[in-house]
Nucleic acid binder design. Structure first.
Lengths: 192, 192
DNA sequence: CCAAATCTGAAACAAATGTTTTATAATCAT
DNA sequence: ATGATTATAAAACATTTGTTTCAGATTTGG
């Protein structure tokens, strides 16, 4: 009965995400977004909604992509401690090679404090990583691959906790070696 | 020959800092600032300058205050490892009790990437903390209070690295215990 | 092919933004 | 006290902001 939507919504959100990722929520204008997405603001408001809704979708797109990638990467690894190692090494690689630092962390510090909807997404993302890693840590403790502590919950927190510091360090010093050395030490500590 | 400046510039910058701290650089408007500072924008532009310059001064005020506080707090402590402990415990206390998380970290993720002047201030702040802690770590290694590694530089990075993760965790989960448990484990690891 | 539906593009919108102007008030050296 | 000088307050400024309007283009079912 009517005309079809011309643009690919998923692709458009992905382009919007790139802009938010670089400039942050408040640093991004609607014109930045429509230009990058290649669509007119009327189309945007007709389909997705306003700036905030577009940000929410961008953030969800970011976190969901990451979750899928993590599952896919860790699934074939049978040894829990090797999976933990892979997860850490992979984080180091991303931190020291991606042009922007993690959108979730940037968002946590820029908007999560004053935005409940955003905070929920961030928390869901964090919980996912926590559960994924916690499963591995528990198994590694069971198998005796980790002996430094029996407190899986705390150890999981402890490991995850390193990532944002590594991002911060890399923004400030742009020195891959510093990150790698910290990661090596972390792993040595865990598996001592 | 002329009229005197009415407002206390240091105090005004301190009020501006509070606003930037809560709302971030891009989330803060000039009207937010002049209202909080209790001065007219013409006075602001006549004395301090534009929004960016005010932010730079606010950030400097923040970092310099922190540096002084750290020196004052650690100076009387003679044992290096006890000073390190104090530094960590004090960070935990601030993270879990201040209403806003660290302005320096927020700024690192929001603006440092695209703002050289801000990046310099952040780096100077980071280097200060690094040097302060590194001196303690070196002495602790010499005295045999730390044996887990002889690499003072890496260990210093490793310790500092925890703070931004603790901030992130507290924003997301608002759970003091999780932070305290991580801090306890960190200290146990270092002094093992 | 028609008609209803809805998407698109460009322009327009009010409000908010960072900054400047201007008139007035206050201060200090003479 | 006077006059030069500078601070202040209020308003005005041009842009930029997020969002909406509206005419025209395109599609689909009948």
């Amino acid at each position: 009965m009517a005309r079809n939507v011309e643009f690919n919504e998923q692709l458009a959100v992905s382009k919007a995400m790139d802009v938010f990722w670089r400039k942050g929520y408040n640093g991004t204008t609607m014109r930045d977004l429509t230009e990058a997405m290649g669509i007119n603001s009327s189309s945007l408001y007709n389909t997705i909604g306003d700036k905030h809704e577009l940000f929410v979708r961008s953030l969800k797109h970011y976190t969901e992509s990451r979750m899928q990638a993590a599952l896919k990467q860790l699934d074939p690894i049978k040894s829990p401690i090797k999976a933990i190692d892979k997860f850490i090494q992979s984080s180091v690689y991303v931190i020291t090679n991606e042009p922007n630092s993690c959108l979730a962390i940037k968002t946590t510090f820029e908007v999560a404090t004053n935005d409940e909807q955003v905070q929920k997404i961030i928390k869901a993302d964090n919980d996912f990583t926590y559960n994924l890693l916690n499963g591995l840590v528990e198994k590694a403790i069971q198998k005796g691959e980790i002996t430094v502590s029996q407190d899986a919950a705390m150890l999981t927190d402890y490991i995850i906790n390193h990532f944002s510091g590594w991002h911060e360090s890399f923004i400030i010093h742009k020195d891959k070696t510093r990150i790698k050395n910290m990661a090596t030490f972390l792993l040595k500590q865990i598996t001592q």
